[in-house]
Design a protein around this nucleic acid. Structure first.
Lengths: 340, 340
DNA sequence: CGCATTCTAGTTACCGGTAACGTATACGGG
DNA sequence: CCCGTATACGTTACCGGTAACTAGAATGCG
C-alpha cells in the first residue's frame, strides 16, 4: 500500500511541490506567484496563496538563495556587542532591512583583524549577500577573500584611506580636531585627551587632537594623550592622572561617552567644579549627556544614519544597481552645552 | 576550443567538485575531510586541505544546511535593539556560539506579538535551527508555527506560565517583590513604583510590587504605580509626579536602570537628598549604578548568563541531545548600596 | 485577417552540498 | 585459512528551490 508523500516526511514543513499539487499548477508557477506576483494571473495566484495557507507552507530561503545564487542575508561585524553606541547603528540597519525582507547576521570581532578574518570567513561560508564592517583595518587575507567573492561591502567606524568598496561614516580625525579647536576657541589653554588604547579609531582621534593643537600653536606634549581602561573607571583614571601629573589642565576631552561620564563623576567626587576647575567634553552624544549637571558638551555623531545609509547602499547594490556615491562622509555636529 | 570550467564561472567561488578534482578524490571525500576529519586517512585529508587552500575554497553552508536538513544558524528576537540591557545577553549568546561554528541572526520585535510573528516567520523561512525569544507572549499562529516545525526554542525575559519549550530567565515578579520587601525592611513606609507602559515584563514587576506591599500590610494604592515614558526623562517624570501628587513618598522603585538614573538626576536638580528625602532603587545593575552618588541600590540580573545558558541549551538540542532541565530560573541578587 | 509580439505557464537542468548505500581492502579470531 | 566486521572511499539520489528555455494562447497592428 502506497504511503502518502506527506506522511513520509519526518519534518513537518510542506514543500513547494505539495503546494503546486494542491493548487493544480507547476512548482514554477508557485515560485512565481510568491516572488513575482505580476507574472501570474490573479486567479492562479489566489489558488496558490490559498494552498500556501492551507498547508502552512513556509518558503525555503536556503534553497532559494542556493538556487538563485543570490542572498537576502547581510553580515554585520561589530568591534563590541556591549557598547551601546553601536546599538543605534544596528537599529538603523535593521529598520532599513526589515520591511525589505533582508536578514541580519551579527558577529563580534574585538578590533582584532585576525578575529575579523575568521568572522568574515564564516559569513562568506553562509553566503551572505553583503557585509557591513565597523572597522577599517583588515588582514591581507580578508581583502583577498572579499575581492574574490566580489560581494558589496560597507566599511564604517571611520573614513578609511583605501576603502574596500563602500563607506558610510564620519571622520574620527576631523571630529576630534573640530572639538579640540572648539575648546581652544572657548578659551581653554591646557587641554588633555583621554582615550582607550589599542583601538584604531582612538588613534585617529589622538591625531586630530594633536594636529588641532599644533595648528593653533597651543601647548601640546604627548603626556596630554592619556590612555585609560574601558568603562566609567577609565574616566576617573583620567581625572586622577590630571590631578597628579598635569594639575594646570583646564579642559579634558574624553574620546567616548562612558569615559566622559566617569570623568564628570570623579570631578564631583573631588569637588572639582565643572567647567570651572576642569571643563569636560565628550565624543558621543548619548541621552544622558543632556541630563547630567552640567549638561555635557559633546560631538553628535550620525550613529543611526550610519546604519541606515550603509543598509541602503548595500540593498541597492545587492539588487544590481550601481551606486553613484560610494563614499559617504556623514559628518558630525558639536553640541555646545554647559560642561565646557 | 573548450573553455576551462573555472573560467566559466561568473562567481569566483570554487566549488567542492573542483577541490575534489584537484585533490584527486571524490566530492564525498572532500565533504568528509571537512566535516568528519576522523573518517578520512591523514594523507588524503592533507591533500584535500591543500587543494582547499590553493583554490581559496569556502565551504557553502547554504548547500550544506539544505542538503543535510540541519542548520548552524540561530535566530534571536529582541524587544529592542537600542536598550543596552540586552547587549549583555547578546554577548553571552555570541560567546557561546562563536567557537562552535554557529551563526546568529538578529531581529527586533517591539513587544508586539504580531510583529514577533512576522519576524519568526522570516526566521523559519531562513530555516534557522533554533530560536531565542526575549519575550513570553506570542500569537496563536506563532505557537502553531513553532509547534509544527519542532525546532528548539528558548524563551527568556521572564518565567512564562506555559513555556513553548525551554526557558532561561529570572522572574520579574519575584525580583520586584524581593526588592519591595527589601525596601520595607529598610524602613521605607511609602513606596512608589515607576515603570514603562505596554510592556508585559513591566506588568509582572507591578504585580510583584503590589503583592509585596499587600503581604506586608503596607499602604498601597494604584496611584503608586506610575507609568512613565521611556528614557531618562521618564525618571524625571516620576519624581515630578511624586512631588505633585504623593509628596509623602519616601522611596521610589524604578523598573529600569535608565529610569533610575533619570530619577536621581531630577532629585539632584530639585535638591532632594537621596536617600533622605527620597530613596531610589533600580531594577538593573549597569556599570554606572556603582559610580553615581549616592551609589544605586538595585537588582542584579543574570543578563549575560541568560544568553550563555540559552545558547548552551540550544546547541545541545540542535546536536540531538535531550536536555535534563529545560526550565532554568537563573535568579537575581539585591545589591545594597547607598541610594536606599 | 494574418503575422509578429507579448503573456502565461510548463519543462528541464542545475545550484552545491550530504545521506544512504555499495564496494574493496585490511584486520582479527577461532 | 575462512569468514565476519571495520575501515576508507566512491556512487547514486536527493535536499527545495530558480534560471533559462519552450510552447501555446492572447493581443496588437497594418
Amino acid at each position: 500500500m502506497p504511503v502518502r508523500q506527506s506522511a513520509k516526511r519526518k519534518n513537518g514543513a510542506a514543500r513547494m511541490r505539495e503546494v503546486a499539487e494542491l493548487a493544480g499548477v507547476s512548482r514554477m508557477t508557485v515560485s512565481r506567484a510568491l516572488n513575482e506576483p505580476g507574472k501570474v494571473k490573479e486567479e492562479l495566484r489566489q489558488r496558490v496563496l490559498e494552498a500556501v495557507r492551507e498547508l502552512g507552507y513556509v518558503h525555503n530561503h536556503l534553497a532559494r538563495n542556493l538556487s538563485s545564487q543570490r542572498s537576502n542575508v547581510v553580515g554585520l561585524v561589530l568591534p563590541s556587542l556591549e557598547n551601546s553606541i553601536f546599538a543605534q547603528t544596528v537599529k538603523g540597519i535593521s529598520d532599513h532591512f526589515r520591511p525589505r525582507g533582508f536578514q541580519l547576521m551579527l558577529a563580534e570581532a574585538a578590533d582584532d583583524p585576525e578575529d575579523e578574518e575568521r568572522v568574515i570567513s564564516a559569513f562568506l561560508a553562509q553566503r551572505v549577500g553583503g557585509l557591513i564592517l565597523h572597522s577599517t583595518r583588515h588582514t591581507p587575507a580578508t581583502l583577498r577573500m572579499l575581492k574574490s567573492t566580489g560581494i558589496p561591502v560597507v566599511e564604517t567606524g571611520d573614513l578609511p584611506d583605501n576603502p574596500i568598496d563602500m563607506v558610510a561614516s564620519y571622520s574620527n580625525y576631523e571630529a576630534a580636531k573640530a572639538m579640540t579647536q572648539h575648546l581652544v576657541r572657548l578659551g581653554y589653554r591646557s587641554i588633555a585627551l583621554a582615550s582607550l588604547a589599542n583601538n584604531p579609531r582612538a588613534r585617529e582621534r589622538q591625531k586630530g587632537f594633536a594636529d588641532a593643537l599644533a595648528e593653533l600653536g597651543a601647548p601640546f606634549s604627548s603626556e596630554r594623550l592619556i590612555e585609560v581602561s574601558r568603562g566609567i573607571g577609565g574616566g576617573a583614571e583620567a581625572v586622577s592622572y590630571l590631578a597628579q601629573r598635569l594639575p594646570d589642565t583646564d579642559a579634558l576631552f574624553c574620546a567616548g561617552d562612558v569615559l566622559a561620564i566617569g570623568a564628570l563623576l570623579e570631578c564631583n567626587r573631588r569637588n572639582w567644579s565643572v567647567p570651572k576647575r576642569l571643563a569636560i567634553a565628550s565624543f558621543d552624544d548619548v541621552e544622558i549627556m543632556r541630563y547630567v549637571a552640567p549638561a555635557m558638551t559633546c560631538l553628535k555623531l550620525p550613529r543611526y544614519d550610519i546604519g541606515r545609509r550603509s543598509a541602503e547602499m548595500l540593498t541597492a547594490r545587492m539588487q544590481g544597481a550601481e551606486i553613484a556615491v560610494k563614499h559617504l562622509n556623514l559628518g558630525f555636529e558639536i553640541m555646545q552645552r554647559a560642561s565646557a
